[in-house]
Design a protein around this nucleic acid. Sequence first.
DNA 1: ATCGGTACCTGCACGC
DNA 2: TGCGTGCAGGTACCGA
Length: 267
Amino acid sequence: MEDMPELPEVETIARALAPRLTGRRIASAEFRCPRILLGDADQMAEALAGRKITGIRRHGKFLVIELSGGRLFTVHLGMTGKLLMDGTPGKHTHAILTLDRGVLLYDDIRQFGRLEVGDGLPARVAKLGPEPLEIELALFTAALHRRKTRLKALLLNQRFVRGVGNIYADEALFRAGIHPLAIASRLRRDRAQRLHQAITTVLAEAIEGRGSSVSNYVDADGRKGSFQLSHRVYQRTDQPCLVCGTRIRRILVAQRSTHFCPKCQKR
DNA sequence: ATCGGTACCTGCACGC
DNA sequence: TGCGTGCAGGTACCGA
């Protein structure tokens, strides 16, 4: 296993990078792997060169690096992407941004990440759902009741809410006491409220813990996250439920590994 | 429009 | 030691 960028991890990275990147100027950019680029490598390098970095923020699982002139460098880390300050380029370094002070590297073993430069958010990013930490209960419940899919699949759908991935979907469903195969449209209001609360709580706690780290997740400062210590079902297959002792099960939902307690989580 | 299934990559753990 | 298999937290795309 490598590492993992869901909302809390990306938020942690954005916070760590902000003070180090803001105010820096990009002297030059080099892109070595066309596969991960949404755009032409030379054009992207040209669009970045000479721009000043004015800020960095998170949008769902996307990192948005704001540049002078309103230009945006949008980065999705995929499954194994890393943004590193002042490291040494290696086999999996696909982008090198030379700054007026220091260097910003993009590493990505599996090449599932995507890099893009534009004068606004890319359309496919702009149309994602609301931030899960901001959506109000009434809107959340209404959106939930419009979908007939299984809850686990819905939580992973970035057009429903943006930023929840496999770990936090499983953890939120466990904390809400809801089965991952429950149908969204049939969820009673009190259970929808529990889910909304569980999502809020688990994401906030994970951000507080600087994200999860299954094996070697390291943020931009090289510090490890600690939230994996708080996982109650994720990757705990066959271990006892921390509430009732029942064996945690693993099933596939929408082709994604899904962990739950069959006693605590009801359809 | 909305759903599930598949493809895209590399590396690691595990059993034989 | 090597080889085959399954697994990995991502999205995009396809057809039903």
